[in-house]
Design a protein around this nucleic acid. Structure first.
Lengths: 194, 194
DNA sequence: TTGAAGATTGACTTGTAATTCAAAAAAAGA
DNA sequence: TCTTTTTTTGAATTACAAGTCAATCTTCAA
């Protein structure tokens, strides 16, 4: 990769980072291309040099987070610990993402409202890959007798839902800190499974 | 109330009903005043005769659903059954609302994105009144020994989150029907509390 | 040093949807 | 019926933000 290409790649990353930031502050609908550009001391015209349009910019923001999330899960998957500990770690990791990436994470929740056909397929696929890890951990626990439940899928959805919800109410200044939430969520939600 | 006033009141209700419908179909951002008017065989100019603006129209849609939800809870509250049964009924009721009112319910989740100061206060207040019922049921269960947990508030949030999430994935054509979801959610989530 | 490729600009176009409003139509009451 | 009030209309206005593009500036390799 030439110097120029490296620079361009870095710029793309910078844009994604700033876009994430602005979206986190203002929400997707209210974050304008101008706002995102301003954050980088650029003009919006430039953004279009790097990304075809707002939707595509969004798509890559989204994709970045999902990729990070998936690699966390892969790491957990490889660890040599009980299924219970795996699902607990997974819950904690998911809490962290939901809290730290607030608004962008929201997009993962409701892609249909924002993305068009072309992106949706890829998003759903990747999202399924992510949630699949939770299914695996649950199944592992059932197989080796740690857990006991029939409705695996619904249990997973309850867990995801509970955790995704933190995104709505969590505030850094609030009553609970992240660590507390992680611990308690992991503990309580696992009680559903055993 | 004169005939005229009654008619106007009825029209306001009709508008709220149609608006709910259109929003349920298209989501808030994509439901235009024109769409809402078309549903009623009116023109959008008329809507402004009954509601100051789109936001206010929305506010009343929202308020209507929340009112219905609260009165369901009040009914459960008055019943002479165990705390466990109360929370189970509450969960089932909440599942029903989340599924049936999909998009409008969404507004309850994220009012900050849409409403301005003037409405937000009233919304939050009413929403708190609603979630307060869940707190009451949980506390009741703790008091009389049915439940055993320290983190009441977080438990409530996990329950609400899990249930709110159904709204995202539930589809009438999908794998599970409403009743199934209600039963399993109530059963599993209560396992967290005991 | 220089000129071609790459990057940036900002004014402009476009599209959408909310909101306004004067005029017309409908309804009610005298 | 006639007059006044209420309701509806649809065309015009307004606001906002996405996306375009010709012109300009920057960079870097020769």
């Amino acid at each position: 990769m030439s110097l120029r290409e490296k620079k361009a790649a870095k710029k793309r990353e910078d844009i994604l980072r700033s876009a994430s930031l602005v979206i986190a502050r203002q929400g997707y609908q209210h974050a304008t291309m101008e706002d995102i550009a301003a954050e980088l001391l650029m003009t919006k015209g430039s953004l279009y040099y790097y990304f075809k349009n707002k939707q595509e910019l969004l798509f890559y923001c989204h994709d970045l987070i999902l990729s990070k999330a998936i690699s966390k899960m892969e790491k957990i998957q490889r660890e040599d610990i009980s299924a219970e500990d795996k699902i607990k770690k997974a819950i904690k990791a998911h809490v962290a993402i939901a809290i730290e990436e607030k608004e962008i994470f929201n997009l993962i929740i409701e892609p249909e409202q924002i993305f068009s056909e072309e992106h949706i397929g890829r998003i759903i696929e990747k999202r399924d890959r992510y949630t699949g890890f939770f299914d695996q951990f649950i199944e592992e626990g059932i197989r080796n007798g740690e857990f006991n439940l029939k409705q695996k899928k619904m249990a997973r959805m309850m867990i995801m839902g509970a955790v995704n919800w933190t995104q709505v109410w969590y505030s850094a200044a609030g009553e609970y800190d992240k660590k507390e939430i992680q611990t308690i969520y992991a503990e309580y939600l696992v009680k559903m499974l055993v």
